[in-house]
Amino acid sequence: MLNLKGNKFTGPIPAQLLENQKKGILSLSYDVSGDEKKNNKVPAVVVSVVVSVLFLAVIYIGIWIRRRRRKLPDPAVEQSHTQYTYAEVQNITENFKKPLGSGGFSEVFLGNVGNSKVAVKMLSSPDQKAFENEVKILMSINHKNLTSLVGYCNDGEHKGIVYEYMANGSLDQYLSGKNRPDISSWVKRLRIALDAAQGLQYLHDESQKAIIHRDVKPSNILLNKQLQAKLADFGLSKAYPAEGGTHISTVNIAGTPGYIDPDYEDTKRLTEKSDVFSFGVVLLEMITGRLEDRNHTVIQFVTVNFKNGNFIQVVDERFKNKFDANSVWEAIRLALTCVSQTSSSRPTMIMVVNKLKDCLAIETYSHYADPDDSGDKLTTDPEKSLFPKPRRANA
Rank of each mutant, 00 (worst) to 15 (best):
T256A: 03
A87H: 09
G6Y: 01
I221W: 00
H158Y: 14
E243H: 10
S27H: 13
V282T: 06
F9C: 05
E36I: 13
Y264K: 12
Q128E: 15
L336A: 11
G280N: 06
K98W: 06
V216W: 03
D373S: 15
K320L: 04
S52A: 14
P241V: 03
Y165W: 03
F279T: 02
Q226A: 13
D172W: 12
S184H: 10
L110G: 02
I63W: 06
M122D: 05
E383T: 13
P371T: 11
I65C: 13
F306M: 08
E206P: 00
G289A: 04
K98G: 02
L283T: 04
M1Y: 14
S249P: 00
S237V: 05
A210V: 09
L72S: 11
H81T: 13
K41F: 09
Y368C: 04
F55E: 15
A119F: 00
N142M: 08
P347D: 07
N308L: 11
G235M: 00
A335D: 00
S343Q: 11
W329Y: 07
S48M: 15
A15L: 12
N7L: 10
Q228L: 09
A15H: 14
D205A: 10
G111N: 04
D31F: 03
Y240D: 01
Y86E: 15
H204F: 01
N295V: 15
E36P: 07
P73W: 05
E265Y: 14
L17D: 01
T93C: 06
E265R: 15
E272D: 11
